[in-house]
Design a protein around this nucleic acid. Sequence first.
DNA 1: TATGCGTAGT
Length: 694
Amino acid sequence: MAAAKVTASAVFRTNQEIKLLARSGRMAAARRLFEEMPRRNVVSYNVMISALARSGRLAEARRLFEEMPRRNLVSWNTMMAACSQHGRVEDARELFDAMPALDEFSWTIMVSCYAQAGELALAREVLDRMPGEKCVACYNTMISGYAKNGRFDDAVTLLREMPTPHLVSWNSVLVGLIRNEDISRSVQFFNKMPEKDLVSWNLMLEGYVRAGDLELANAFFARIPSPNVISWVKLLNGYCRAGRMGEARELFDRMPERNVVSWNVLLAGYVQLSHMEEAYKVFMEMPDKNAISWTTMVSGYVRAGKLQEAKDVLSKMPSDSVAAKTALMHGYLQSNLIDDARQVFDGIGVRDAVCWNTMISGYVKCGMLDEAMVLFQQMPNKDMVSWNTMIAGYAQDGQIRKAASIFRKMNRRNTVSWNSIISGFVQNGLFVEALQHFVLMRRDAKSADWSTYACCLSACANLAALHLGRQFHSLLVRNGFISDSFPGNALISAYAKCGRILEARQVFDEMVGQDIVSWNALIDGYASNGNGAEAIAVFREMEANGVRPDEITLVGVLSACSHAGIIDEGLHFFSSMIKLHSLKPVAEHYACMVDLLGRAGRLREAFELVQGMQTQPNAGVWGALLGACHVHKNHEIAWLAAEKLFELEPRKTSNYVLLSNISVEAGKWDDADKVRFLMKERCVYKPPGLAGST
DNA sequence: TATGCGTAGT
């Protein structure tokens, strides 16, 4: 009897010790202690499962859950919470449905899991199904879910509906307002709260810091009844983010109490500015460092392009940190050192999703899609980012069918998934598919963002679908995206490409932040609608507004000159491009110039310009020359251009047809025969029913 | 006696 009591208290003490070790990040020691226990009870297993999940080892946690000899309600709840923490919504739901009994924790975890995944309707369904009197935590979880997703009205309604709102309920709404950077509504709400605690005060302080007014934040800080280290950290963070490191350091030195977080914030401040000497001094000064401190240093050196230093710091780190190693890996990938990155990746024992995704996206970015796919298939717990990376990767590589097949295999999709596939279709010229997927996206109840609208407008533009473009325009207005410059620019292009240049101009004029892309879209719009003079006028207007032209601007301007037949001005813009704007002309500019000179019949000059090009002329340039030769019946230069074109595009029928026509029109029947022979030799066939040039 | 849910900091 006495021996049993001793054993029970030993188990109790060891359970506590495991928890403490795990909470301080010493997982290996915690695991060892658990393995070496002579006797374990349910709680030992529960503690270990929770610890494993919190340190990113979900698979191990699950294994232990399956293996444990006896489970209680807490074991089930712990496992559910573990799945929820890792975004495994389906797994959590499966456990929830399979549990022998449910308590208020089970219900709350399920609500929290759905809310975190953005599935608010499902979260609400669970809350509503909860029998008897619902607990405060469950209400708070739902309120927090609404608030963090910007649905304040729903959050406040539920707050009013619940029988006994708690201070935490109010704070849950406040955090949503603060994160949404709605400062005036935050202040209003804060003042209306029936009671406030330090959490409320600290949230409001964060609101002022986010609003970027540090003087106001400082004044508010002075009003906090008894600020704690978190209050100080929030203010310190404000100065660090603003790059005001002198004041930040002063504030830091005045802090009555410092912990590892405050040190980390100061360190991150110097790192952000790439002040690595200062950062290193702070790093050495720190009384204790956690994994975040080390990761901050490593990623700081990576940002500063000092990969050797990053590697050296990492090698001095006493414990293992996936995040720190991933930071170094990221650095190697940015410098295209794929093999070095892979070596780091292979050396990481327990990889988290960020680690896998970093390596996968590294492969994708340098076009190594096969390698990316192998890793993607090996990855045990793929998250949304993994899937989206592969979709975007294949789409950008022109493999849109593969992208679409991956997209179809996804169980759940978020806005980014939809945007990736829609933008993929647009990039690959499949505009109708892009718009069809927009319809499917709305059926999936996923909300479109500015990127969705920009892609869809671009699809409308390319289809010259004016009516649809107008519908997207009104959707943009209704959803409040109209002042953002990116979809605004897409809208300008859409109207311009549909021939509605006046509407394009109107959108441009009503836009808040016109950028270089907006100006380019307008100039190109006038040029491609045949209004060269107006395009040039807009270009002048842009210069007068102090906006510096880029390469794309000049393509628009030069093609405007070409369409309008303004030869001398075109030549002037072309030379000013290098001299005045220090822009390097590329093939597109030369193609415009060839077109310009060609239209004026100055074929010899055009040919000489091409021969003098710094870079290799592409098919666009030679094609423009061949086209001009056709118009002006220059048989000799036509052959020179065509021979180059045949090298670049040996199987493009229209080039052969054009050259054949030119030869025939010049009465050179032998040459026309020669072209026909070439076509036969290269198995190029004129499509039936296609007479003349294409 | 412990373990699992809801609000603030890197």
